[in-house]
Write a protein that binds this DNA or RNA. Structure first.
Lengths: 335, 335
DNA sequence: TTGTACGCGTTATCAA
DNA sequence: TTGATAACGCGTACAA
């Protein structure tokens, strides 16, 4: 038994226009009639139908969040903060978990969320130029978080600088033989260009210290614990094993921790380690990392997205946030 | 430049009825005209407006997922599997993160998602009888996961049996002095009755072995790592400290691990530990736990929910799944 | 087999 | 200050 605005109007003996005005706090309603209408609304427990409202307003009060959800805890923490940022609003999150290339294309190309969401927040997923152009043409307010395309507002962390911070820290502590486990640029066919930037930072720190890049000390793995461990095992079994490892993500760093333990290599005495992301697990396992401003990333991206929704003429911009080196108990001086 | 069904009809020189029939695969369309219409649809990249469709069909193709999202990794893993189960469908997830009592009531009492979602999946959050009755009266297809109410289809794990398994295992290994860190029944004003059941299982195993319940060995803490650690510290500082601890959740068990490490208590030599949930972290940190069938919980709950959506006359049922003891390297014989 | 007209529940316009 | 009426874009009887 769902009531409509007509029921309210009929029972309150007013026109539906008046009810609508009451609902939308239009001041052009005589206080007395407003009271009368509100009384009926309360009595019937009437709630306006949001779908019908969307028909007219062309707003759904929801945003689509595209996220490669389960690959990394980092994404969960981002999502948490996105959610928190959205709370004060009355907007809802429609979750698009993206696990395969096909899924991503299905969402991006068909843009099925068109008119089902007011805006789109894309987390970490690379957006090709053609797709970005499509999104722009379709006029879908969009913000990219932890991924970049010049056509769309993008919020990224300075990955080059972050990696540089990490490696420089290790060098400062006397390490000369530093392993680098980077993330795959291609995973599930996604191109994560974060990895490229982190490699650049690695190179820069090395170059600045006059250290040579040793190809044998550079490996890549999936952005996962298991892959991180396997790769670390490889690195640590090397004839001349590294005295320090920089991992491109915390979850890979966890794998390094495991590998070291299984090889009875003590951390930090025999091996220093720095991860990347600053997920809660890094604190829990007490390892050093390059902290991303996760909370700020969530809030700022929502703020920008809402700006795009409210003012479609808003121009795309690139926002670059900084990382922070957080030293915990996995970084020691090289012997 | 969004096209409507009228544009398609006009350009294809047919009526909108025909276009609609083509869109909905109604067989009563002459192949030739179908082709013609499809050609125009393809040319215009026309997509029917889902909002307008919802007006008529009264389906939104989305389900609301209410989840106390960030308190425990367990919920994340549940959500992951719920998402996976929903993928084959063309349904979307609207995420309702619930962190406070006020939020929960806002969602439950106003039922603002009414008509914005086809169904509701409530994870872990207790549902009071009055609320359950409201939901039933409102005719909102609903499934409760990891929480129970007789009025609604509920999918729960046998918490009593799970706790019993854990404690019995410890007793079998010779432990006579077993600490129990239970979760709070009330947290953020939520009443988590999972804790009650686990306490019952604890009692049962003790009683069966003829062991006395020692109130000093029974503490409760928030369902968090920090709280688990603080509580474990208290337990382990006791004059006659336990030789084994059963924690009501894995995340609390992690806290126990930390506490033991900080007190230089070796695990499992000096202290055995069993957690509850079977989250990935338990595998990562290699501690024993009572494994919940997380994947099955996700898939089965969605299956049941869809049944309720498709056939509103479906009767509520109680589904009870079993837990499994997974022994890793934190359970040893008592000396 | 096809087209027209109506209704879904709102908001917005316009005349009263 | 108010009420009737026209959209919004679609699905669906019903008539042709």
């Amino acid at each position: 038994m769902e009531y409509t605005i007509h029921d309210v109007a009929r029972i309150a003996k007013v026109g539906i226009g008046t009810v609508s005005r009451v609902l939308n706090n239009n001041p052009n309603v005589k206080p007395a009639t407003r009271e009368k209408v509100l009384a009926v609304i309360a009595e019937l427990h009437y709630k306006p139908n949001p779908i019908a409202r969307s028909m007219i307003s062309r707003r759904t009060n929801s945003i689509g969040v595209m996220i490669p959800f389960f690959t990394r805890p980092f994404h969960i923490e981002i999502l948490r903060n996105v959610e928190a940022a959205l709370h004060p609003t009355n907007m809802q999150i429609v979750l698009y978990n993206i696990e395969t290339n096909a899924q991503r294309d299905a969402y991006f190309l068909d843009l099925p969320m068109r008119r089902r969401v007011d805006g789109l927040l894309v987390i970490s997923l690379p957006v090709e130029d053609a797709v970005a152009q499509d999104i722009k043409n379709a006029g879908i307010p969009t913000v990219l978080l932890d991924t970049y395309n010049p056509l769309l507002t993008s919020l990224v962390v300075n990955n080059v600088e972050g990696a540089y911070q990490a490696v420089k820290c290790l060098i400062k502590k006397g390490h000369r033989h530093i392993g680098f486990i980077n993330g795959l640029t291609n995973e599930s066919n996604f191109k994560f260009n974060q990895a490229n930037d982190r490699l650049i930072g690695f190179h820069r720190a090395l170059g600045e210290a006059g250290l040579l890049f040793d190809p044998e000390m550079f490996l890549t793995s999936e952005w996962s614990r298991e892959a991180g461990r396997a790769t670390a095992l490889q690195l640590l079994s090397h004839g001349r094993r590294p005295t320090a490892i920089f991992a491109a993500s915390d979850i890979q760093a966890v794998g390094v921790l495991e590998a070291a333990r299984s090889l009875n290599i003590r951390i930090p005495e025999e091996l220093s380690l720095i991860g990347f992301d600053g997920i809660e697990l890094s604190e829990l396992l007490d390892f050093s990392t390059i902290q991303q401003p996760i909370e700020e990333m969530g809030f700022l991206s929502i703020q920008k997205l809402i700006a795009h929704i409210d003012r479609p003429e808003t121009q795309p911009e690139l926002i670059r946030l900084n990382t922070t080196l957080v030293e915990r108990h996995t970084t020691a001086f090289s012997l």
